[in-house]
Amino acid sequence: MWKMRHFSHWFLLLCILIFINNTQAQSHVGKYDWLLPDYVKLQYAGGIGFLSAGVGYTFVHQRIDATFFYGYVPKGIAIDDLSSVSLQFTAKLIRIRLSENYQLLPLNFGWFIHHTFGSEYWIKLPSHYPPEYYWWSPGRNAGIFVGGELKTKWLAHKTPASGIAIYARIGTRGLYLASKVGNSSIPITDIIELGFGIALYR
């Protein structure tokens, strides 16, 4: 039953996001509009939080995305709650126009860096250790993913958003890859971080 509860939370947050977007419907063009993020995202799982909220910009004719996420894992899902931030870059290699209202981006490659908050998740080796005692940082991991996205024009006429997209991604991180190397006994599914989310484009 607990898993159902997670999904209902997710949908509740989704509804809130859409609602907020609706209520802010205004159509003026401001001087600093270019500062506004090109999209906001809400992501489930993917190794960077139970739920993660992201904002980002798109570059190079919408082929490169840079997204900043704040992710949260509530207590109950883990024995202690976890807060983290991540920065990710995505290259959207293929864009297929399905119709007036739908675009499919089936091959998005991404790289991310993920920082979990808390003194035990240090980035720099604490001073009481001899130099290079541990080679990695528990507080900062990098990873890669590949994903797909379906961009739609749902809500485009009802909100200031130009469209809404759903996406999924499958990835892993350096520490998992380092664990998998030389260990055929570890199933590949164990090092996979699967996630999906929704994006609202400006």
């Binding site: 489930y44 799982a45 993917g46 894992v73 883990a78 499958i170 996630g195």
Partner: peptide, 8 residues
């Protein structure tokens, strides 16, 4: 396969 955090 859904993974929330390496520290979960």
């Amino acid at each position: 396969l859904f993974d929330y955090s390496p520290y979960q």
